[in-house]
């Protein structure tokens, strides 16, 4: 919290173009390879903000259709994440950002949908980074984003994405002493199966604007060291959120932890378990997804009433 308030946010004129950001990131990676790692392992202290963002209704509807959301006039929480994503990425793309942006792994995501946001609303989006920390296989950090109704202090959506720069160890940042243990996982009886085609990455890129090459096709993924393209983590989490359905209401907390990536094409088994309170009101839905052949867990999470 301290960093982003210590100085005024940098106001960006428009939502940055993700493809340009990715190109720039690739250039940065190359430059670092030549010049060596960043000397000062500190996160940028400022935040980036884009004001008066308007939602394109056609994009919203395509998003709702792709993810299986009811096409109501309310923005799905995952759609807001996609809106905020370029602003977040622009922070990670700064010259003083100490980690390579390309190839970073999305570890987990926490979203608070604090009020329903209608497509007619104009939004201010701010993003900043926090909590640079060691991870047993690299360095992790939190990217925070906050969405407000334009020109107001009313926060309607808040998100924390935790990323890992694998294999990057910065001077002065220690690895955690106790490596976190992967919990053993026995697949439950699935409540659903997703058939994800090769084009899922491209389709989600189309509605979210996230054209990260690791999601687009096998070739571009291989260029970044992956055997095949992988599904966007937020595509998976957003589909699980849509599958929770109308019961979740309009305000909720939404969590996901990513484990094994989903290589495309894929069959993903899914279980959604819903808990009701004593009065029969929905309280939370927990979801877990796994590879039905290997039994490896892809991701798990929950949607909880606020």
């Amino acid at each position: 919290m301290s960093g982003q308030l210590a100085e005024q946010p940098i106001i960006l004129g428009d939502v940055p173009s993700l493809s340009k950001l990715y190109l720039n990131a690739a250039a940065n990676t190359a430059r670092r390879r030549i010049l060596g790692a960043h000397p000062d392992p500190k996160l940028p202290t400022g935040s980036h903000e884009v004001r008066a963002v308007r939602v394109d209704i056609a994009k919203l509807t395509s998003y709702q259709h792709l993810l299986g959301e009811t096409a109501s006039d309310v923005l799905p929480a995952g759609f807001i994440h996609a809106l905020a994503f370029p602003v977040s990425m622009s922070v990670l793309n700064r010259d003083d950002f100490p980690l390579p942006l390309l190839g970073m792994i999305h570890l987990k995501n926490h979203v608070e949908q604090l009020a329903p946001v209608l497509f007619t609303e104009t939004l201010d989006i701010r993003a900043w980074t926090e909590n640079l920390a060691g991870h047993r296989s690299g360095t992790q950090l939190d990217v925070l984003a906050e969405v407000r109704i334009h020109g107001t202090e009313k926060v309607v959506w808040r998100g924390t994405s935790t990323y890992l720069a694998k294999g990057v160890f910065l001077p002065g940042i220690d690895k955690p002493l106790v490596p976190s243990q992967g919990t053993s996982f026995t697949p439950p009886v699935p409540t659903g199966v997703w058939e994800l085609g090769l084009d899922v990455g491209r389709m989600y890129a189309g509605v979210s604007g996230d054209f990260n090459p690791i999601h687009l096709n096998a070739l571009s993924a291989r260029a970044l060291g992956l055997p095949r393209s992988i599904a966007h983590g937020m595509y998976l989490a957003s589909r699980a959120l849509a599958d929770v359905g109308a019961a979740r209401g309009e305000t909720f907390a939404w969590d996901v932890q990513f484990e094994a990536p989903v290589f495309l094409p894929a069959r993903v088994a899914l279980e959604i378990a819903t808990s009701q309170g004593m009065n029969g009101h929905w309280q939370h839905s927990d979801y877990v997804a796994w590879n039905p052949r290997s039994g490896r867990r892809h991701f798990s999470g929950s949607v909880t009433a606020l």
Binding site: A58, T61, H65, T70, A71
Partner: peptide, 8 residues
């Protein structure tokens, strides 16, 4: 409703 489906 140009982009809205029947289901929507």
């Amino acid at each position: 409703y140009a982009k809205s489906s029947n289901k929507d």
